[in-house]
């Protein structure tokens, strides 16, 4: 590897490792039911959407989850923790290596595939959805935060219910 290549790869690799770490922490927080931590992965005005690919392709605005800003994310957390009636289950997220599409001083644009599987009592483990995170990430101090995390899922039909954010 030439010196020139190293200097280019350096920040790219560093960024990718930082994103892998971000994705791993994000998935673990939700997998472990630490829902209160979820909004803290976003900027105050961060946008989270969970959108069927069908709507994304047709340019239609309806999402299965749609949270504009940290307060709306917190309201979703309250619902997940306090108001939703759901059968007990384990949900686990598998996020692939992030692909960095662009990065400059203020923003990283990246994508990663995601697979969500669930395990319910008396049932075999099954896939809830498969899709892709479309992320816009910004740096605030030492932390990387999602300015936008759009999960576009291929799955046409969700099996029964999706009781947590992806």
């Amino acid at each position: 590897m030439t010196v020139m290549e190293k200097s280019i790869l350096g920040p790219v690799l560093e960024t990718r490792l930082a994103l892998e770490d971000l994705n791993a922490r994000y998935a673990a927080a939700l997998d472990d039911g630490e829902y209160d931590a979820w909004p803290s992965f976003f900027t105050d005005d961060g946008l989270y959407r969970l959108v069927p690919k069908e709507n994304q392709d047709l340019g239609l605005p309806i999402a299965a989850l749609h949270c504009e800003g940290r307060l709306m994310l917190e309201d979703r957390v309250t619902a997940v923790k306090e108001t939703t009636m759901a059968r007990p289950r384990e949900l686990r997220r598998f996020v692939t290596q992030p692909r960095v599409l662009s990065m400059d001083g203020s923003e990283i644009v990246a994508q990663a595939n995601v697979l969500l599987v669930e395990t319910l009592l008396d049932q075999m483990t099954k896939i809830v959805l498969v899709g892709r995170f479309l992320d816009r990430i910004t740096r605030e101090g030492e932390r990387l935060l999602f300015r936008e995390r759009i999960c576009v899922y291929d799955s046409l039909h969700i099996p029964n219910s999706l009781v947590e954010p992806v």
Partner: peptide, 19 residues
């Protein structure tokens, strides 16, 4: 779009029903 959060497979209300 915002109120659709109540409905669908991840709806704040309708999940209770599908479950």
């Amino acid at each position: 779009v915002r109120q659709a959060n109540l409905m669908g497979p991840a709806g704040l209300v309708s999940v209770d029903d599908s479950e």
